[in-house]
Design a protein around this nucleic acid. Structure first.
Lengths: 206, 206
DNA sequence: ACCTGAACACCGTTCAAGT
DNA sequence: ACCTGAACACCGTTCAAGT
């Protein structure tokens, strides 16, 4: 941790990523400049090009890390309730929303159309698939136990993913007024998750 | 349509917006340049500054138009089924998803964190509120008729909005593999909407 | 292998000047 | 009132050169 002789760094790549995450939060993806990232990391403006092909690849690398965290959270939710798929799903939803709320700029980078999605460079697409598969497994667990309707698994998966994803995106975009504290948001995630499981319709209604 | 004498335009502002929408689709918000927009509209690179304070205000104006279309669609869904709040909600969801799918780049601009949300300039925030209120009205109609659960209205609204918003965002981000055709997407919106109303749980399950 | 410095084309934004 | 042209600081990207 004190070998600062040879050019500048032991691990410039991750130093650049850290600096970029900070600048992303400050300035947004449009105003973020690769030159400012390089300066923050203490290298020349050309140095990042040894590690990222261009600015969009730097942003994609940040998004990729986000998808990896998401996949981890899905796996943890499944492991956390080995015999209770309903709790797995609720926890997965809460974890999803929590991750997005803690890193709103990264969430928006992952899904906001600035970096290309699954179509992008291979590792990004793979990380994204991994997160998706975690959710699929959780729904499959519930269907195997007969907890969920006998509908096509993908219909249930899309419904659950849409709900939790939508909530996360609305919250990180500041679209939900009066919802600020993390506790409030987790409550909302839980409420909405229960609604998805039991439905909006009144028990008595036709 | 042939008065090209005085400087250049009769309505440069909307010509710039049209050009910007095209370039947005081609190059994305980061690579979109105000100078290219000006050139496409046939004016000097300084001319846009008479109509927009800066690049972000141009993008915000595009997003605002998107929110206005969304508010219109919500109102149309309500009017389309005067006595059937369930159909109002399903139609609103389908319209929401359809708008997003037809203009993915605008949808991502509206919600992707590139332009500031409700916090932004007044007209943007107002347009966004208007769309939201349309959905609230539809849910309130259902509660008034006793169709929906007697839960807090905002819980139902957030659930419904999250679901439809999430589906729209996942589709526009290309995150849902194998879902391409508009018909397929509308089917999915309908399926997911019914799931939200009736719930994921099996009727028999505890 | 990894980084620097100069270089090029391009950008956002401003402003005095034109009609 | 609305637009132009020059100007400035900044950016993305490349490349020959350094260690």
């Amino acid at each position: 941790v004190k070998a600062e002789k040879t050019y500048h760094h032991g691990d410039l790549r991750s130093a650049l990523l850290r600096a970029a995450v900070d600048l992303l939060a400050e300035r947004g993806p449009v105003e973020l400049s690769l030159r400012a990232v390089a300066k923050a990391a203490g290298v020349s403006h050309a140095a990042p090009y040894r590690h990222f092909r261009d600015k969009s690849e730097l942003l994609a690398a940040i998004a990729q890390a986000g998808f990896e965290s998401l996949a981890d959270a899905m796996a943890a939710a499944e492991r956390g309730h080995p015999d209770d798929p309903r709790a797995q799903l609720i926890d997965a939803g809460i974890a999803y929303v929590r991750l997005a709320v803690r890193n709103p700029h990264i969430a928006q980078l992952m899904f906001g159309g600035v970096v290309e999605p699954a179509a992008g460079p291979a590792p990004l697409g793979r990380a994204c698939d991994e997160a998706f598969k975690g959710l699929v497994r959780i729904i499959e667990n519930g269907q195997r136990d007969g907890i969920y309707k006998d509908a096509p698994t993908m219909d249930l998966v899309v419904a659950a993913w849409s709900m939790v994803h939508g909530l996360a995106m609305l919250v990180t975009a500041g679209q939900l007024k009066g919802v600020d504290s993390p506790a409030q948001i987790e409550d909302l995630a839980r409420t909405v998750g229960v609604l998805l499981q039991t439905g909006m319709l009144a028990p008595t209604a036709g």
